[in-house]
Design a protein around this nucleic acid. Structure first.
Length: 304
DNA sequence: ATCCTATCCTGTAGGC
DNA sequence: TGCCTACAGGATAGGA
């Protein structure tokens, strides 16, 4: 679930929380995540002080003194949750609890267990197999049209598939891919290798704007994402197409359509994102079309 | 080489 | 109400 803006939000909060604290102990659930959580994690983390938190694509890097980095990925449903004091109530699906010497705790919770916790030598971080394959980070290096065009090369991949390919651009997921393409006025089914330079410039601009605005609003809470403080993100009511199947396009009023690409939902406006984009005045945005601050899952999904 | 499908998991919405 | 099915923000091994 969490894409770059959500992970970046977590990174900032994580860094502000961990600096100045010392790890006293770590407790593990013993359950397997995307891969097995190293059993010696408690022994290797005890006594260490976090030095900072970095992000690479959707991966979080918590640097610790002594040359170790705790690599984590939130998968679809992972969360880092901070508790200033030890909570009394039990919480399901907590796989790791980092206990600090001041009594506060940092929990990794992940119901679907697609997340990842891995301990890596900070020195050899670049060689980590998960990080080594990642492409350009669109926040660290905001892309330009020519950059994207070069990354696409002559691929037959759809432009939606291109945006989702972490080896080319790292951090964009299913929500923001649809949002970016709507902003760029580009049909998600267009072959990336055939996108014109002028359209690449639009995609590059849309990528920068959408990610920047989403980070500003602490990400999108679709169903389960929460910040470190267990608060939902605020970008949900800015979404133009994602999960809005059948609802009017905020720009032209045409019903938003849902299609399936590579077994994943894509949402787009058939008018604003047609092969030959038309100019339109833009329908006024009524209160009825303004998105409610919904935080539940998708409903009324269009079948086939 | 490139691209697509199935798979790992649990929670939940929606149909009946 | 409850049971059942389909789908959910991701990554990736393996097959075509």
């Amino acid at each position: 679930m969490p894409e770059l803006p959500e992970v970046e939000t977590v990174r900032r909060l994580l860094e502000s929380i961990v600096l100045g604290r010392t790890i006293r102990a770590v407790r593990l659930s013993g359950l397997r995540l995307r891969e097995r959580v190293p059993r010696d994690l408690p022994r290797r983390l005890a006594g260490r002080r976090p030095l900072g938190a970095r992000r690479r694509g959707k991966y979080l890097l918590l640097d610790l003194d002594g040359g170790l980095t705790l690599l984590s990925h939130l998968g679809m449903s992972g969360r880092w949750l901070f508790h200033p004091r030890a909570p009394r109530a039990r919480m399901a699906h907590v796989h790791a609890r980092i206990l600090f010497t001041d009594g506060s705790q940092l929990w990794f919770q992940d119901p679907r267990r697609f997340g990842l916790l891995r301990l890596v030598s900070t020195e050899r971080l670049a060689a980590d197999p998960s990080l080594a394959v990642l492409g350009l980070d669109p926040v660290a290096e905001p892309p330009t049209g020519p950059t994207l065009r070069a990354l696409a090369g002559g691929t037959r991949l759809s432009v939606k598939g291109f945006l989702l390919d972490q080896r080319r651009i790292a951090g964009i997921g299913n929500i923001y891919a649809s949002e970016i393409l709507h902003r760029a006025g580009l049909d998600p089914r267009t072959r990336a290798g055939a996108v014109r330079p002028a359209s690449w410039a639009m995609v590059a601009r849309a990528t920068r704007v959408v990610l920047e605005e989403a980070i500003e609003r602490c990400g999108t809470t679709f169903s389960s994402y929460r910040t470190l403080w267990n608060e939902p993100g605020g970008y949900g009511d800015q979404l133009r197409v994602y999960d809005r199947s059948g609802e009017p396009c905020r720009a032209c009023g045409t019903a938003i359509r849902r299609i399936v690409q590579a077994a994943r939902s894509t949402f787009y406006c058939p008018r604003c994102q047609s092969a030959r984009p038309r100019r339109h005045a833009g329908a006024p945005r009524s209160a009825a079309t303004a998105r409610r601050g919904r935080v539940s899952g998708p409903r009324a999904r269009a079948r086939r």
